[in-house]
Design a binder for these strands. Structure first.
Lengths: 224, 224
DNA sequence: GCAAAAGTGTTAACTTTACACCCATGT
DNA sequence: ACATGGGTGTAAAGTTAACACTTTTGC
């Protein structure tokens, strides 16, 4: 049988309240040693793709139960200098605050980089992968309520709006945004408000995931 | 190095004027001999993924210059009874009339099956692949003008409407559809009309691909 | 002359956009 | 008291949805 090697790579997005950021590692091995790269790993013959991606995620962030979705498969013959390695790329959305990224065997340093100021010269074809992931995030966030995966479970409507503004790179009207997002009934107010802020305290809201799942099954399509 | 085997599969869609159809082969080999399957092939170590998919397409349909896009990668450990074979699935849209599908080494019979009456018991996980392709086609057709890839280069507005109705499984108002699609300015009337039809002859239109490419580059987003 | 699909406008309902002021809180 | 961001309503413009009759053609 014709044999090849394959790997997974996982683009990890977070939101710092201002910008979308992506987690990149400094490679600890050749090839591209010391260059920045999207975290990834080879896949074992007895290992499914998704679990392999989750295990990379967990080793870097310690998190389980993370939103993750397959992005695209990159298979150019010469994309890897050591031979034919096809990579299945995933992207994940995490609450940036619940993570202290820890270096691991394959990652010397690991850090968040804002999308609007990305470092040049990523290893392999990782710039292409990253661009594809950004494009997908932009499209997806408009038709599925995945933005919440980037926020704490309780968030203010301003945080949510700023998240959309950061992803889509547009300005949104405060009142119109509020009306539109509340009209979905997927966002529930809590009794809590911000504390120790030098202005009127904003109310915290939560995303009603169960309601969305149910509506979704009945044909409802989220749109922002 | 850890080795695995790679294949591509290609879901080929056509439109017969009534229904969307998909091209399936009857397998000429074990495993799943005599079962229906999505056409595909193993990928050689020195072969890029897309060309591999195009070559399957060409061997079955004789066509080049076909709309094709990567769909998803299916990699469950046990999806193939003979060992670990990961498959990268593509989907293609063709003008059904310009094809006379010809059997080949791996395809005993080859035929079009309408989406609303698909055969059961496809080989491997091909039902899952096909379902994913249908879902993708449905979504994509609403945000990119790819429907034209399924029609002859000259088509009537009724043909176009019936195409959308078949893909989306909805009824559309003739007048509203006409107004909406013409407002994009991407559809140009020709001087030709239908001949030998037992009713008022409909005008033929063409899709202005260059205009779309140009508008697209300036940020225009098609929507139906 | 009949059957079949083409072609054509208007109105009401709804959605989107633009826009400005007062409120609560910490310093 | 001031600086900061929270919270709120309305009107105009634009979009979508619903709906019926006349025209052309082959038989």
């Amino acid at each position: 049988m014709v044999q090849s090697v394959f790997s997974i790579d996982c683009v990890i997005f977070g939101f710092d309240g201002e910008s979308i950021r992506v987690l990149l590692i400094e490679r600890a091995e050749e090839p591209f040693i010391h260059d920045l790269a999207i975290p990834g790993d080879l896949v074992q013959p007895n290992e499914d793709l998704e679990p392999a991606a989750y295990s990379v995620l967990r080793s870097l962030t310690g998190l389980k139960n993370i939103y993750m979705e397959q992005l695209y498969t990159f298979g150019k013959v010469n994309r890897h200098p050591l031979g034919r390695i096809i990579t299945v790329a995933y992207y994940a959305l995490v609450h940036i605050d619940s993570i202290t990224p820890k270096p691991s065997s394959f990652a010397k340093r690991i850090d968040w980089y804002p999308l609007n100021d990305l470092p040049p010269n990523l290893a392999f074809d990782h710039e292409e992968i990253l661009n594809k992931a950004i494009e997908r995030l932009r499209r997806k966030v408009q038709i599925q309520p995945i933005g919440f995966e980037l926020l704490p479970s309780k968030f203010t409507l301003s945080q949510l709006r700023k998240l959309y503004e950061a992803i889509l790179d547009v300005e949104m009207d405060k009142r119109n945004f509020r009306r539109k997002i509340l009209k979905t009934n997927l966002i529930q107010p809590t009794d809590e408000k911000q504390k120790n802020v030098a202005h009127k305290a904003a109310r915290y809201y939560t995303f009603d995931k169960e309601k969305y799942t149910e509506l979704s099954a009945r044909g409802y399509r989220f749109e922002i």
